[in-house]
């Protein structure tokens, strides 16, 4: 990962515990969630069903529930658990100064 700094989105404190907020990464909308177990997750921000804003959804440590029609997606993989197309998931973490970072896709 040398030299790959990733996208720095902002302070972790911008996201209340257990909620999500939307960020733009390279023109793409990404919903970032701060789980109650302390970790963060990032998936594409739009529900593939009707475009619901997933950052407004309720989460637990595994899934996000779209606020529109309550479709469910796995936060770690982006996989739909209710028969919709999958979301894209992004590698995400928090660095030493509490900044949320989306890491670049690791190329093979």
């Amino acid at each position: 990962m040398n030299g790959l700094r990733g996208h720095r989105l902002g302070s972790l404190d911008e996201i209340p515990v257990g909620e999500g907020r939307t960020y733009t990464v390279d023109g793409e909308m990404v919903a970032v969630f701060r789980l109650r177990d302390g970790s963060v997750r990032a998936v594409s921000a739009l529900c593939p069903h009707r475009g619901g804003p997933l950052a407004d959804g309720q989460i637990d440590n595994t899934v996000v529930v779209c606020p529109m029609h309550l479709f469910v997606f796995d936060l770690a993989t982006g996989c739909s658990l209710s028969g919709q197309p999958d979301l894209t998931s992004f590698p995400v973490g928090v660095d030493a100064d509490r900044t949320i970072v989306i890491y670049p896709e690791v190329s093979p």
């Binding site: 911008e14 209340p16 909620e19 999500g20 907020r21 939307t22 023109g27 909308m29 804003p53 407004d56």
Partner: peptide, 12 residues
Amino acid sequence: TPGQFRTSLPLV
């Protein structure tokens, strides 16, 4: 809460 009223609306 921080960003309570921040938009979650997509750009698309």
